[in-house]
Design a protein around this nucleic acid. Structure first.
Lengths: 242, 242
DNA sequence: CGTTGGAATATGTATAGACATAATCACATG
DNA sequence: CATGTGATTATGTCTATACATATTCCAACG
């Protein structure tokens, strides 16, 4: 028979039915849908079950919920994608490639103004390194670490363990900012990544924080051809089993 | 007093306490934490409350949960960021800029092999357009629409309403694939985006599906300087209030 | 010794009921 | 008319209990 998927039961069934009504335009964008109590009665289940389904749809960006105002179909659907930014070593090893890490430089210095704006005044630890896959350069990492937030970093050499992994273990962050962009390879980028100056590089800027204190700011310049892939929708509300 | 944040109550308090123990290495990576019943007893609450907190942490990628096996601290922490890819018109208008849409070309044709692999055999609708902000080119859109999945599209001219918005309204997708990458501007990219050939462009490839049938595949080439920003952690498990 | 089958167990989900909280709306008041 | 205030209401959350389900573990069996 090979039925694609068994008919869902429980809150997922409600999730799917509500989604169907939205897609079928029974409930067009902006429409306020019935409240949880009424839906529970209609579906013959407890309110908590409806709540679970609607909350999942809200987390997907399909619904917008506000107390007292009720639940409405989102006016401006956005594609909400969850991107996993993995630890570089694992990213490479999971593809079955050999991972190499080479520290290029390490020292304390006064960071440039743009970095100082987030890391705060004073000296910081500057670490540059190259990650490679099967011998080919993969990512050029240029990182500043706050010595006020992470004083222990001053004693670490980072010759064999990448700063990223050391920090993850020693100074976990509470939140962070990420930016994806395309940059032209500088002369240094080009030399290290074995490409030519001006080549389009996929670049990730990431700053991580421990509450209100910045831990580290890093620029990751990926070798040409790199891309980040992800999905939207799909698992619906299943959660995060990789 | 300006206390940064009020001490959380309920399931968020448990979420934060568990996270604290993980960060404090009371529960190191790989460690199996107590089961929900024990934690509920410890925190003096119902199991459902603990469940809510642990499920949130699992969705963040901090914990891994399996029935019977229990809950363990994730061995390989990944930065799980949720990226909102907005409708281009809104993205521009929300910054207070004027939005312009110009259809460049529209016609049915045999798509190139790479597109045909996902869209299926047969002719498809090819639409190219330029979105601009305050008169400056912003995104060059190159899209193929499956006429087998969305036959209505053949009758639409796309002169004033962008294909993206038309599709969102008429042919909602169940899931999609997204890829972010950096590409060198082709001659055509450069001409349309008012930059020079070879310039690094941020490019998004997106394919959307209605169950197992592809709806559309689009390449969005953004003008130089574009970047996508997002956060990790932060709201923890609050959900999706924009 | 390997395989299989069942018992044990931790999470997943559902339920009914209750209270908390935020936001809205209508009304009264200045 | 502007404004504040309180009742109303829908969602947010918690509780206690129950059953479902996936896995693991172990023991019996071939």
């Amino acid at each position: 028979m090979a039925t694609g998927a068994p008919p869902p039961k429980g809150w997922q069934a409600i999730h799917d039915e509500v989604l169907r009504r939205i897609h079928a335009r029974d409930w067009p964008p902006g429409h306020v849908i019935p409240n949880e109590v009424d839906l529970a009665r209609e579906f013959g289940c407890a309110r908590a079950t409806v709540n679970r389904a609607l909350r999942a749809l809200a987390e997907e960006g399909i619904l917008e919920r506000r107390r007292k105002a009720g639940t409405r179909v989102a006016l401006h659907p956005v594609s909400r994608a969850t991107v996993d930014v993995p630890v570089i070593r694992r990213e490479i090893q999971e593809r079955g490639q050999r991972y190499d890490y080479r520290l290029l430089d390490r020292g304390t210095a006064q960071p440039p103004a743009a970095i100082r704006a987030t890391l705060g005044a004073g000296e910081a630890l500057h670490v540059t390194a190259l990650h490679s896959a099967d011998g080919a350069p993969y990512v050029f990492e240029d990182r500043w670490i706050s010595l006020t937030t992470v004083p222990d970093a001053a004693a670490e050499c980072f010759t064999s363990l990448s700063a990223n992994e050391w920090l993850l273990a020693r100074a976990p962050y509470t939140h962070g900012d990420i930016a994806f962009s395309a940059e032209a390879a500088s002369d240094r980028d080009a030399e290290l990544l074995d490409s030519s100056a001006g080549a389009p590089l996929f670049v990730i800027w990431r700053t991580t924080w421990d509450h209100d204190r910045a831990i580290t700011t890093v620029r990751l310049a990926y070798a040409p051809g790199y891309r980040i892939r992800t999905r939207i929708g799909g698992v619906a509300a299943g959660g995060g089993q990789a």
